[in-house]
């Protein structure tokens, strides 16, 4: 360890980043808050929030956002868990190779993904052509510009985010535990439900919360693959900002979205697996 004086001096090292974040991260956030109480000509107003209170559109979008985020989290978990389980069972070398298949989508632009899915899922896309060939000349199944499209896009986006923490908690388990249970006569199912699954819950909780938090503010995928009338809160911010030029309302929605996210971020810092997500700072 460094000597004590040096340990205290370490505060100098975090100073530049902290000053930068205060100036370029916290002040912009404050700008959003103050804009939500300010009319376009600079006076104080409650109008932004008052409008949201009575707006049927906002109520619908807010409910949509929570519903889509919950659905995305559950569907992502259903896909990510079996994948993480499979990866955990592989020998280390093989797992390292297979991880490329998870890391590449993680680092692929969301625009590339959306574009690819729009081509494949379209009415004359690969999937519909395949279905037509198998089932027959039915009408195309609508896989885009609706809830299905958003769910496909978001699930694809979030699987890597969910796989990482679950894989970490699966790999942290001692391989002796299932072996001991097996020696004592437990079947594979019983070992999974009584040992493996409960011990991986920190990863599951961290991955699910992370997915849910990031879903709440999702913008690109609902905008490109979702239904025109199935908006999420981020899209509504954009709508009020650009289309109707009503900045107080746009900022008020952003503030509510921020509050909603902060509540769940607070929760994330309190659960055991949250540390793996926040780099052990939480």
């Amino acid at each position: 360890m460094l000597e004590r004086r040096a340990q205290r001096l370490a505060i100098m090292f975090v100073a530049p980043a902290t000053i930068f974040m205060l100036a370029v991260f916290l002040i912009p956030l404050w700008k959003v808050v103050s804009q939500s109480f300010t009319t376009m000509d600079g006076h104080f107003t409650w109008a932004g929030y008052a409008e949201l209170k009575t707006s049927i559109l906002f109520a619908k979008v807010m409910w949509n956002t929570i519903e889509i985020s919950l659905m995305a989290t559950v569907v992502t978990l259903l896909f990510a868990y079996p994948l993480a389980y499979y990866l955990a069972k592989q020998p280390p070398r093989r797992r390292a190779y297979l991880m490329v298949f998870v890391l590449l989508p993680f680092w692929t632009s969301v625009l590339v993904k959306s574009f690819a899915f729009m081509v494949v899922l379209g009415e004359n896309g690969f999937i519909n052509q395949g279905l037509r060939a198998i089932i027959g000349g039915d009408l195309p199944i609508k896989l885009l510009f609706n809830r299905t499209g958003v769910m496909i896009g978001m699930t694809h986006y979030f699987i890597p985010f969910m796989v990482f923490p679950i894989l970490t908690s699966l790999l942290a388990q001692s391989p002796d535990l299932p072996k001991a249970a097996q020696l004592m006569g437990s079947g594979a199912m019983r070992i999974f439900f009584k040992i493996t699954l409960p011990l991986s819950m920190p990863g599951v909780m961290a991955g699910s919360l992370l997915t849910f938090i990031l879903s709440l503010g999702f913008f690109i995928t609902p905008s490109l693959m979702g239904g025109r009338k199935d908006m999420m809160m981020a899209n509504l911010v954009d709508f009020y900002m650009r289309e109707t030029l009503n900045w107080p309302v746009a900022a008020a929605i952003a503030c509510l979205l921020l509050l909603l996210s902060l509540a769940f971020i607070g929760l994330l810092t309190r659960i055991p697996g949250g540390k793996s997500v926040l780099g052990e700072a939480g």
Partner: peptide, 20 residues
């Protein structure tokens, strides 16, 4: 926690804030 929080704050909120 403060230095890492931009990871979790909704990007749209930051985008609006940066614009203002």
């Amino acid at each position: 926690l403060f230095l890492l929080s931009p990871i979790l704050v909704p990007v749209i909120v930051l985008a609006l804030g940066m614009y203002l």
